[in-house]
Amino acid sequence: MSGIVTLVPPQDRAVTLEEARQQLRLDAHDEDMLLAVHLDAAQAELERLADLRLCPQALAMVLDAWPDEITVPVRPVTIAAITYTATGGATVTLPEAAYVARARHGFVRIRPAAGTSWPTLAPDGQITITLSAGFAEGHPDLAIARAAILVKTASLFENREGAGCLAFDTLVNQLAARWV
């Protein structure tokens, strides 16, 4: 079994309230709470549909056993550390030279380094992979994501009873395709 847990959540949204206000040409702040809800919903939907984490954050992926190859189900990520419970019960950090992490088909895949195998895990042990996720400011894919969030937020704000947003769907599909 594996799961992703958030260790340090993002400190900001991908799109600020002020940027959304400019997109909608709003001068007043009386609907900021509603606008914030729409921003969060648009970002969450984009991240879910495209399997992306937009803003910098720290995550942990927890495994009960060593698979042949580990696929990290979120992107973009870098591996900060891999720790495991050794047979003696101690928590051990796997040296970077003991594994290879490569992006393939958009996702990071981790396998033992050439000529090595995964270390022995304690019977009730677990593996924790600490990840740094999110785009760096200025990344071109972040610009696409921000445009999609602004379009979706405007659609949600202006069509409060709910309506599809073709522009958002198109941008999400374009962003997702860039990571295949």
Rank of each mutant, 00 (worst) to 15 (best):
Thr91Pro: 00
Ala122Trp: 10
Ala113Thr: 15
Ala60Met: 08
Glu18Arg: 09
Ala44Ser: 06
Asp30Ile: 15
Asp169Ser: 06
Ile70Ala: 03
Gly138Cys: 04
Arg53Thr: 13
Glu161Leu: 11
Gln11Arg: 13
Asp68Phe: 09
Leu94Thr: 03
Thr120Ile: 05
Val5Pro: 06
Asn159Glu: 08
Ala176Tyr: 15
Trp118Arg: 06
Thr85Arg: 03
Gly115Cys: 05
Asp124Leu: 08
Asn159Met: 08
Ile129Ala: 00
Leu39Val: 08
Asp30Ser: 05
Gly164Trp: 14
Ser155Ala: 05
Leu7His: 09
Glu47Leu: 06
Val92Asp: 15
Asp40Tyr: 12
Gly134Val: 02
Ala81Asp: 08
Asp40Met: 06
Phe107Cys: 00
Arg178Leu: 12
Arg75Met: 08
Arg53Trp: 15
Gly3Lys: 04
Leu34Val: 02
Leu142Ser: 00
Leu142Asn: 06
Thr170Leu: 13
Ala58Met: 06
Gln126Ala: 03
Cys165Pro: 07
Ile82Lys: 01
Asp64Ser: 07
Thr85Ile: 06
Ala14Val: 08
Thr83Val: 10
Ala122Cys: 03
Leu49Pro: 15
Leu94Val: 03
Thr83Pro: 02
Glu137Met: 09
Val108Pro: 05
Ile82Met: 05
Arg111Val: 01
Leu59Gly: 07
Val77Gly: 00
Leu171Glu: 08
Leu17Asp: 10
Ile110Arg: 03
Thr170Met: 11
Leu49Val: 05
Lys152Ala: 01
Ala20Glu: 11
His105Gly: 03
Gln174Trp: 10
Leu59Lys: 07
Gln57Arg: 11
Gly106Met: 01
Leu142Ile: 04
Thr120Gly: 00
Thr120Ala: 01
Cys55Val: 07
Asp30Gln: 07
Leu171Asp: 09
Leu52Arg: 07
Gln23Cys: 12
Pro112Leu: 01
Gly115Asp: 05
Asp12Lys: 05
Val8Lys: 05
Arg75Lys: 12
Cys165Trp: 08
Ser155Glu: 09
